[in-house]
Amino acid sequence: MAPIPHPPTEPQDDPETYVGLDAGEAERRARTRGWSTVRALPPGAIITMEYRAGRLNFEVKDGQVVRAWKG
């Protein structure tokens, strides 16, 4: 019998702490804090809305994070 899958764990990290950071610095910081996927998106980007544990999304305008959220 196959083992029961376990979803990846998420870091205990507040996405709001990334708002205002340079996009490159925000991504480096997120990866060191344990986020397995970091996605930088332009404002108004059309994206899929499925929730993925371990993913952190950034909305980036002019090289700066203006919004951040999990999933």
Results as ranks from 00 to 15, higher is better:
M1S: 15
M1I: 14
M1Y: 15
A2P: 13
A2E: 13
A2Q: 11
A2S: 11
A2L: 08
P3L: 10
P3D: 10
I4Q: 10
I4W: 10
P5T: 09
H6I: 14
H6F: 11
P7N: 06
P7F: 06
P7E: 03
T9A: 14
T9S: 15
E10H: 03
E10M: 13
P11M: 01
Q12L: 12
Q12H: 13
Q12W: 03
Q12C: 11
D13I: 09
D13M: 06
D14W: 00
P15Y: 10
P15D: 03
E16N: 11
E16C: 09
E16A: 15
Y18C: 02
V19D: 04
V19H: 00
G20A: 03
G20N: 03
G20D: 01
L21G: 00
L21C: 09
A23T: 06
A23F: 00
A23I: 06
G24M: 09
E25W: 07
A26R: 08
A26E: 01
E27W: 08
E27Q: 15
R28S: 15
R28Y: 05
R31N: 04
R31T: 02
R31D: 07
R31G: 05
T32E: 15
R33V: 02
R33Q: 14
R33M: 10
W35L: 01
W35M: 07
W35N: 07
S36R: 14
S36T: 14
T37K: 14
T37C: 10
T37H: 14
T37W: 10
V38L: 07
V38D: 05
R39A: 09
A40R: 08
L41V: 01
L41H: 07
L41G: 02
P42H: 09
P42R: 08
P42L: 07
G44D: 06
G44V: 06
A45Y: 05
A45H: 04
A45F: 03
I46V: 11
I46R: 14
I47R: 13
T48Q: 11
T48F: 10
M49K: 10
M49P: 08
M49G: 08
M49S: 13
E50S: 12
E50N: 12
Y51E: 01
Y51A: 05
R52F: 12
A53G: 08
G54C: 09
G54Q: 04
L56F: 04
L56I: 14
L56A: 03
L56M: 05
F58Q: 01
F58W: 05
E59K: 02
E59S: 00
V60N: 00
K61S: 03
K61T: 01
K61F: 01
D62H: 05
V66F: 01
V66R: 06
R67Y: 05
K70C: 05
G71D: 11
G71I: 04
